[in-house]
């Protein structure tokens, strides 16, 4: 498959995306442990930034993204406003979804981040529906759906892949194999080891990429999107990476081997990519630090924006259920 090599700006953009995601997630982690700062549980993609940046940068603006509970990276890479995202995580009125979503169910249709499902394994059938609409209208766009290796044990994922394949729908299935499903290790739920090999069951291409190597992820996503956009049906990309935190910040990872965690810390996707850029002579000695500062400033601004936003009024809980609301019930007595 012919593929244009990435230019310097594109390679640096991947680094900048990952730095923004890292800075954002580090702030979430910090605030999650400040009592009363953030409502609810906080789930981050710390360590998985290369998957978000690498895949999302391969998408066109009109492509659709469907994601899951570990979604902050996908949204930030997609260009969603960090302030609106932070405000939503805080449940504020100026959040993406007026506080109705919180961290878990984010949607930004303006960026074609269409749906998020936190029911594990439910995102792929939703993505099949979105891809069907693209196919039905004869559009050249694709739908990209992110799910975890744990989700791959759900029957709904099989149904979605099967239907997408028999109808040759433009879906890029992206499995972020982060070694953990809750507190369950990969080998405890996945007898085949590599979920990408399941693609053969659906007669679609399946590719395993190093999920901590952002350019490898990006290249694989570009190749598979080429297949998908050519009308040749869906494709499956598995990105082998590691969940560097617990399932959420409420999970102290007592079941994780610290030596394994340390090994993966040495394979930090940001450090790996920055080093590759330096070796290629594309990154001046202090450029990475400058990019990191820009990311931190963006997160500072996002937190300030979110802090300044009020909570939506309690009575607004009654809004946004139906487009055509139910008529009021007849008065009693």
């Amino acid at each position: 498959m012919q593929r244009q090599p990435l230019d310097r700006d594109q390679r640096i953009a991947l680094l900048a995306d990952m730095l923004l995601i890292r800075a954002f997630e580090e702030r979430i982690v910090q605030m999650a442990h400040e009592k009363g700062r953030l409502p609810g549980m906080q789930i981050t993609c710390m360590g998985q930034e290369a998957v978000a940046a690498g895949v999302v940068r391969a998408l066109a603006p009109d492509d659709v993204v469907v994601t899951n509970h570990r979604s902050h990276g996908h949204l930030l890479a997609r260009g969603v406003d960090p302030g609106a995202l932070m405000a939503e995580i805080m449940g504020k009125q100026d959040g993406l979804n007026r506080g109705k979503s919180g961290t878990l169910h984010l949607a930004d249709p303006s960026r074609n981040v269409l749906m998020t499902s936190t029911v594990v394994g439910a995102a792929p059938p939703l993505a099949v529906g979105a891809a069907f609409a693209q196919h039905y209208r004869g559009e050249a766009n694709a739908t990209c759906v992110f799910f975890g290796d744990g989700a791959a044990a759900e029957g709904s994922v099989h149904e979605a892949m099967n239907l997408a394949a028999v109808w040759r729908l433009p879906v890029l299935f992206v499995c972020e194999s982060n070694c953990w499903a809750g507190a369950q290790a990969h080998k405890e739920h996945c007898p085949i080891g590599e979920i990408a090999r399941r693609a053969g069951s659906y007669a679609m291409p399946g590719v395993m990429a190093d999920g901590n190597a952002v350019e490898q992820v990006h290249d694989a996503a570009r190749d598979l999107l080429g297949h998908v956009r050519a009308g040749r049906g869906p494709a499956l990309l598995e990105c082998h990476t590691y969940r560097m935190r617990g399932h959420g910040e409420h999970d102290p990872q007592h079941y994780v081997d610290k030596a394994e965690l340390a090994l993966w810390a040495e394979r930090d996707p940001i450090a790996l990519h920055a080093e590759a850029l330096r070796r290629a002579g594309l990154l001046e000695p202090d450029a990475a630090e400058r990019l990191r500062q820009i990311a931190t400033a963006a997160v500072d601004a996002a937190v300030a924006f979110a802090d300044a936003s009020p909570y939506p009024p309690a009575a607004e809980a009654l809004d946004h259920l139906y487009v055509n609301p139910l008529p009021p019930l007849a008065k009693e007595g």
Binding site: V128, G129, A130, S156
Partner: peptide, 16 residues
């Protein structure tokens, strides 16, 4: 595939 049929409906309707 009832889950996929219903997912198809949800996803396609979200697209209009």
């Amino acid at each position: 595939s009832e889950a996929a049929i219903a997912g198809l409906a949800v996803g396609a309707s979200c697209m209009g």
